Simulated assay, not measured.
Amino acid sequence: MPAASTTLRTLAVSVITLLTVTGCQAFNDAGRTMGRADIVNDLAARMDRALELTYSAEYQLRGGQSASFAQSQDPARSSYTWPGGKLTVTDDATTRCDVDGGRTVCTLEEPPAPNSKPSVVVFAEAELQGVVTPPMVMGLLTSAALDPGAVITERSSTVAGHHATCVDVRQDAESFTACVTGEGALGSFTGQLDGQPVELALSRYDDQVDGGAFDLPAGAGVVDRRTAGP
Rank of each mutant, 00 (worst) to 15 (best):
T90E: 04
L87T: 04
S14T: 09
D210F: 09
L146M: 12
P134N: 04
A26M: 07
F123L: 05
A50I: 00
S175F: 02
V209P: 00
V15Q: 01
P118L: 08
T81Y: 02
L8P: 00
A4H: 07
Q171Y: 04
E199N: 15
T190Q: 15
G149F: 02
Q192D: 14
S143R: 10
A26E: 03
A93M: 01
V169L: 05
E183Q: 11
L216H: 09
G102N: 13
T81S: 12
T107E: 09
H163Y: 15
A44V: 03
S66E: 14
T17E: 08
T22P: 01
P134V: 02
S14W: 04
G101F: 11
L8Q: 01
A160D: 05
T107F: 03
Q192C: 12
I152L: 13
T107S: 09
C106I: 06
T90I: 06
T88H: 05
A76T: 10
D215P: 03
L193I: 15
V89Q: 00
T10C: 02
P75R: 09
D210C: 11
R36I: 03
T227P: 08
V209G: 00
A113I: 13
A201G: 15
P2Q: 10
E110Y: 11
L141F: 12
E125V: 12
G195Y: 11
V15K: 00
G149Y: 04
A113H: 12
N28S: 13
A76M: 09
D210H: 13
I39C: 08
T133D: 03
R103W: 10
V131R: 03
Y205T: 11
V169T: 06
E125T: 11
G195R: 12
A124V: 02
G161S: 08
G64L: 09
T6M: 15
S175R: 03
A185M: 02
D224T: 01
V198L: 11
R77H: 10
R155M: 13
F69P: 00
D215W: 05
L108Q: 08
L53C: 02
I152P: 00
G195Q: 12
L8Y: 01
V180R: 01
T177W: 08
T142C: 10
A220T: 07
D147M: 00
D168I: 09
V159S: 05
V159E: 04
V137K: 01
G229T: 14
W82R: 08
S156A: 15
A150D: 02
A37V: 01
R49E: 07
Q196D: 15
T95C: 06
A164P: 03
P83F: 07
R46S: 00
Q25N: 12
F123W: 09
T177N: 14
G212I: 11
E127C: 06
D91S: 14
A160M: 07
V132N: 07
A30Q: 15
T54D: 03
L108F: 07
V121Q: 05
Q192E: 15
L61S: 03
A201N: 15
A124I: 03
P118D: 07
L146T: 09
A144I: 09
